[in-house]
Design a protein around this nucleic acid. Structure first.
Lengths: 215, 215
DNA sequence: CCTACCGATCGGTAGG
DNA sequence: CCTACCGATCGGTAGG
């Protein structure tokens, strides 16, 4: 059963590397774009600025991607992969149920703690940036977030299904509250520049889990 | 006592209108900028775009403000005033304590519900935009948010002080959790395009208040 | 408040 | 991957 759950999650969250489609340069550019976008956003990031940071010419960057939009889409894709690798993948070795849920939440809090000094989370920085106008980049960002929502929900459901939480727990409601706390840690820590939001989020997560029947 | 609390809050949250300092044009420009910034951000908004929307020339806008930065600062200021007027001011007539706290939270949820169709909340759209680089605009946004944090905290403290919540409640922790839920409603509703986040935030707020001893 | 203009920078193309 | 260049747009100024 724990095996089955892990397999389902692996499918949902499988890394999307397309072998052969990327050169070393492409990977270096996208990685740099990902880091810069977490600070300055994905739209404000200019091709010239990115190229200069990498010691290459602007048209060299354009030649590898075709357009800024294509570069942005590649950047969202790699940001999603990094998130999966750093936050989700490590907890799939933990037994499904409350243990895995706690591990996932702590993994996210630690991820966001590590991001604090380096300038913030990619998805936090870019989500509101594209919120207004419809675009393919916006769709890609929303799809990545929806995927994360689904993973969290599934792990919550499994904890309930296994009997680790009260059987009448509303999984979507619980997942929503936990997500609100994770995001608050991320945004508040960046805003205030302290570790206090992460501490408060950890406390609140435990309170919410306990009121859902967790020991 | 309820009177005293209202006076303190009124001081903290007094409207900052400087009479005489604004012409009708200035007010119209800033109001338009505020609405546009809630959708496209405050930095991406260009002077030419703003001027065109208002049917005037770009240099006309610049002449009234001196620089884009000054316009941005004026816009943050008016956005803060609108927030105070729409969210905080109405609840000051409610008796201090749990009633006022509930009224404030409901006021914020309704405010964010109303913003959903018109393209989002000004502070949600602009906070992450300036998070990276230090600037006077960033400082102004952070100051407005800190002010809101302080008001929420004060109203929570008052509910505890009045005995409406458990006396050993951690006011900062409770305020933090409530704020996380308010912000989740705002961002999720814009992202998903449904009213569900507001419904979930209302449910979660009541759960959090009850676990702090609210009837 | 306007027209006319400035240098800088944007994303992108031509041609190699 | 490069140099050289394109039209468009940026914030801002001059002068009225």
């Amino acid at each position: 059963m724990a095996r089955g759950g892990a397999i389902v999650l692996s499918m949902v969250m499988s890394l999307r590397n397309q072998p052969g489609a990327s050169s070393p340069s492409r990977a270096a550019i996208v990685d740099r774009a990902r880091r810069l976008a977490a600070v300055e956003g994905l739209d404000g990031l200019s091709l010239a600025r990115l190229a200069h940071d990498l010691g290459m010419s602007k048209s060299g960057v354009v030649a590898l991607f075709g357009s800024k939009e294509a570069l942005q889409l590649a950047t969202v894709s790699i940001a999603r992969d990094v998130f999966v690798e750093e936050v989700v993948a490590p907890v799939l070795s933990v037994a499904g149920g409350l243990d895995r849920l706690r591990a996932l939440l702590e993994s996210h809090v630690r991820y966001s703690e590590a991001r604090r000094e380096s300038g913030g989370c990619f998805f936090a920085a870019t989500s509101s940036e594209f919120a207004g106008r419809p675009s393919s980049v916006r769709d890609a960002i929303l799809a990545a977030r929806a995927e994360w929502d689904a993973v969290l929900l599934r792990i919550v459901e499994r904890a309930i299904g296994k009997g680790d939480l009260d059987p009448d727990t509303d999984a979507e409601q619980l997942a929503y509250q936990l997500r609100a706390l994770l995001e608050a840690a991320s945004t508040d820590a960046l805003r205030l520049g302290t570790a206090e939001p992460h501490r408060r989020t950890r406390i609140a997560i435990e309170a919410v889990l306990r009121s859902a029947g967790a020991p």
